[in-house]
């Protein structure tokens, strides 16, 4: 069966697969964790969601010469699991505009239905004010009872237990894909990772590693996250060095005796 707006390079035979879906979000938590897993499992790319109905193109012009317009990507990967549920990944490098979020999510659910996906996993950062002392926790929310039982079985706290919160929200595709999955009777889990608010706009966060570790544990995968930790540590170090450079420049430009204080 041909799926509209979906380009499949091959049709892998998947056994009760789980779909792991991620897009850029706060602290790049979901994207970094899921992309790392995708890479370490050496998942094979097998398709993509055609972007034309969901995104506007971007163009690059260099020295007066324009390139072919580019679109954001939403690529599909799969990994055959000899010891359990196969995995599918949908990795997007940009969020669509709000008018197109549901449409894109619904299209991905078409793919999930086609491959008989059993459950969708996503992740999101849970931003907290102030500093975080101690370990960063991971807790979950679900679309259905079965997924709730599954989290309990794997000793993952629920949001209400971790934060004593009855109501919350998830913005963007990392949330909408679950809502769309639920509408079409596919179960879903979102793993929240605690994160200090200061990291919300940064591209590196230790929360990515704790989320990845939790996912590895509950999916019973054999993946080492040492490399991820090094990637994050190095990234944070570079950000610190950058901000130090900016501070020096700032003081130089605007501080006492600086150039703007000439008069």
């Amino acid at each position: 069966m041909k799926l509209k707006q979906v380009k499949l390079y091959k049709e892998p035979k998947l056994e009760e697969p789980y779909l792991l879906a991620a897009w850029p979000g706060m602290g790049m938590v979901a994207l970094r964790a899921f992309s790392y897993l995708n890479r370490k499992l050496n998942a094979e790319e097998f398709g993509e969601i055609e972007p034309y109905d969901f995104f506007d193109p971007e163009v690059s012009i260099r020295d007066g010469l324009i390139d072919v317009p580019e679109f954001p990507e939403n690529k599909l990967f799969y990994w055959k699991n000899e010891k359990g549920n196969d995995l599918m990944f949908c990795i997007g490098n940009e969020q669509p505009s709000p008018e197109n979020e549901y449409k894109l999510a619904d299209k991905i659910v078409d793919v999930a239905k086609h491959f008989r996906v059993k459950r969708v996993y996503t992740s999101a950062a849970f931003a907290l004010g102030g500093h975080l002392l101690g370990e960063r926790r991971v807790f979950g929310v679900v679309t259905d009872r079965e997924s709730k039982q599954y989290l309990k079985k794997h000793r993952v706290m629920l949001l209400s237990e971790a934060m004593q919160m009855k109501e919350a929200g998830i913005s963007g595709m990392n949330g909408v894909i679950l809502g769309a999955a639920r509408e079409r009777c596919i179960g879903g889990i979102c793993l929240f990772g605690e994160m200090p608010e200061a990291e919300v706009r940064l591209p590196y966060s230790k929360t990515s590693k704790v989320v990845c570790d939790t996912l590895i544990r509950i999916l019973e995968l054999k993946v080492d996250t040492q490399e991820l930790e090094e990637e994050i540590t190095q990234g944070i170090k570079e950000l610190e060095q950058q901000s130090l450079r900016y501070t020096v420049d700032y003081k130089d430009l605007f501080g006492k005796g600086g150039k703007t204080n000439e008069h």
Binding site: S97, E101, K166, G175, G179
Partner: peptide, 8 residues
Amino acid sequence: SVSGVMIK
């Protein structure tokens, strides 16, 4: 437009 989901 849908730009997120609710949790209850």
